[in-house]
Design a protein around this nucleic acid. Sequence first.
DNA 1: GCCGTTTTCGGCCCGACTGTTTTCAGTCG
Length: 576
Amino acid sequence: MTNASIADAFDQIADLLDFQGANPFRVRAYRNSARTIRDYPEPLENLVAEGSKRLTQIEGIGDDLAKKIVTLVGTGELPQLVELKSQIPESVLALLRIPGLGPKKAKALYDQLAIKTLADLKVACEAGQVRKLKGFGEKTEQLILQGMEIAEKAGQRMYWAEADQIVQTLRRDLGACRGLKQLEFTGSYRRGKETVGDLDVLAVAESPSELMDRFGQFVGQGQVLGRGETKMSIRLQSGLQIDLRVVPEESFGAALQYFTGSKEHNVTMRGLAKDKGLKVNEYGVFRVKKDQEEYVCGRTEKEVYAAVGLPVFPPELRENRREFEWAEDGKLPELVELADLRGDLHMHTTETDGGATLEEMVEAARKRGLAYIAITDHSKRVSMANGLNAERLRAQWKQIDALNKKLGKHFSILKGIECDILESGELDLPDDVLAEADWVVCSVHYGQKQPREKITERIVGALANPHVDCIAHPTGRLIGRRDPYEVDIEAVFAAAKKHRKLLELNANPMRLDLNDVMCAAAKTHGIGIVISSDAHSTEGLDVLRYGILQARRAGLTKADVANTRSWSEMKILIGS
DNA sequence: GCCGTTTTCGGCCCGACTGTTTTCAGTCG
């Protein structure tokens, strides 16, 4: 049983309890634990073997949840969850995805109108049944009908890279507003999450209404969801919701901290503030004295954190994972930056499925300030991409040799290959060919659905080959589109550590694989991470910044990322 | 359900906005 499945079980319990109107703090306990477990760097299965005492050492897991984890791991199911599901049809949980419908209203619909599915709900709304319920009205009914379409669109979060494009446009648009003093995009966007559910904009403006008018024009074919004195929300036609908040100057830092989140980070932060007799909200930090509150600060994030005795956390770390522990020990990592990257070790050319020639890729990489690149076209098994056999590969390497001579010592092109790990576990090119390469990345493209043992064996086997340097996109997931392979990532870590090999963080915004939690786990094992573009065009080289964001979320420093080194230093690292 | 501790049980972050009310509950972030 994986951590993800344990977390899913607890999340389902939370949803069902919420629906039943259980104690909200009990519900929260399940949700918190689910989140912690999903992010936990080691399989809980391993800890179970050490007894439930070991489990309760994890923040947010007490005796009760520890027992439940033991049961789940041991039997594969949880009597409590089975029982809950027998009481409430699972389909009602879909109702909670409609914006504006929370557990209370959903339960009222279920209890009073026997609504079990989205289809039931639609019929009831159209028949005017819903408006008759206490607490509901005509508007709520309309809202639900609109929300049904959104519920389908909404589950889809957009890639950070897509959100970034909207942010750039909106920043330009709003930035032109007269009397605008501050403008910042907060929320999961600022934290650099791989996907973004909605956008949050924070501003200080002389005339909030003028800014809101301007914001309203951004709606296009979408709609304005609401507008108050300080807050306005719109939904673009694409389904993306954008919230704008205008705050006074003396609150900007507090609001920036607050709306950047994450929620979990803020809960901990407020708890620490409370211990110091302080209250933190989006308006500032306040000293609480009897019935009075005295404003302490709030102009900048630095002031706000300093008041609570904390450093300014890079937004990427604000997930309530280990950042507070690091801060307490004075060991907040100095996170890797885009400018630290010296080389890019995974890219394609027109020789296979790339859109640019060898020369064009080199030129583009030099323009971007890189000192070396590895050309890693596909091997022959990837026939769709016109993959290379030994002969064509060696021919390409001759070209590289020639070009390297012309370039001199200021730039190096490495003779590389993205060698397929075949379904059988064998590599797609013979050892004598791989031995001639400067850099070998291996990856799985076929047989992705093989059972856990088999696919793990393939990847572990590749790591054991002395000519292999790195595994590319080690879990194969495509965010929101394709699940990861069933690979036992712990076994991959163990093999990478044993053979002193590197693992890739693929910077393609749809991949970002390894993910942040896995990168952090790899770091604890002492495994080096390579951030690569996997570029199939010259523009493709620009995705490195998305990989950097993910690495920062994992808490990686310059030293943790192998390709921040020069190629000669890298050679020592990979022992060639 | 967890946590800390006043070691037995109370507290658990907090404010804006909306719709349905007539003073507030529910939802959201």
